[in-house]
Design a protein around this nucleic acid. Structure first.
Lengths: 124, 124
DNA sequence: CCATGAACACCTTGTTCATAG
DNA sequence: CTATGAACAAGGTGTTCATGG
């Protein structure tokens, strides 16, 4: 019944991928949910990847649970009344972010190797 | 009710990945289900990927539905009575396989680009 | 034990709905 | 309309069970 599933170790999940980008974007500029979505969609458009809004929100909530980010509700720039949720690093979040990024780097390298191997093995 | 879900276009699915390998392995040598699993596990062990038997069977069944492979029940080499299911190309399966592999090549290249971009964007 | 297969349960993720400005 | 969020449901995949040698 309550057996935990052991992952097979195939490619990384979308959620983890988005969390990585959201950390990096938080390092660079102050943005809120839908704006982050917009940036990501623009970035990945040439590669045929179009994340949806729920995934971005869930990734952001994950990062909050991880103690990496925190929410900062603020008036949107220019707008007088529209309040949106910006993100910045939580206390101690920078270090946790650094650790997470290090783990993801290893995972991305592994995935790159997996794909490279598939190309070699099947197209030579 | 029967609304189809549009994939977001993130990384390719395990099933497709396995189907590609199973086609290539069928080109090379005659093997049956669990033996194919064994080969794949050995291949990917250094990369931390360990597919399970059900996924391999489902991928093989998919390839049959696609008209690419067909089953050949035969006595296992050496054994007198144990009958196992070998695979070979169905009639016209070679061409379909070639087409499938061409599609997967494009998909693998896309995934490689996605991962390469993530490494560049987040680690520079 | 090996081998094949299907049923089942869980997990990820896309879609929809609810609330608020 | 934008924005955030949660609920829901479809799809993918790991685990278990059934059958047979």
């Amino acid at each position: 019944m309550g057996e935990k599933r052991t992952p097979s170790g195939f490619l990384l999940k979308q959620r983890a991928f988005l969390k990585l980008y959201l950390i990096t974007l938080t390092e660079q500029e102050r943005l809120y949910g839908l704006k982050l979505l917009d940036v990501l969609r623009q970035e990945f458009k040439p590669l045929g990847y179009r994340p949806n809004h729920s995934e971005v929100y869930k990734a952001l909530h994950d990062l909050i649970e991880d103690g990496i980010l925190k929410q900062v509700k603020q008036k949107k720039e220019g707008m007088k009344y529209q309040e949106v949720v910006y993100y910045r690093f939580a206390e101690g979040g920078q270090e946790k972010a650094k650790l997470y990024k290090r783990q993801l780097k290893a995972e991305l390298d592994r995935c790159a190797a997996l794909i490279r191997k598939a190309i070699e093995d099947n197209y030579s």
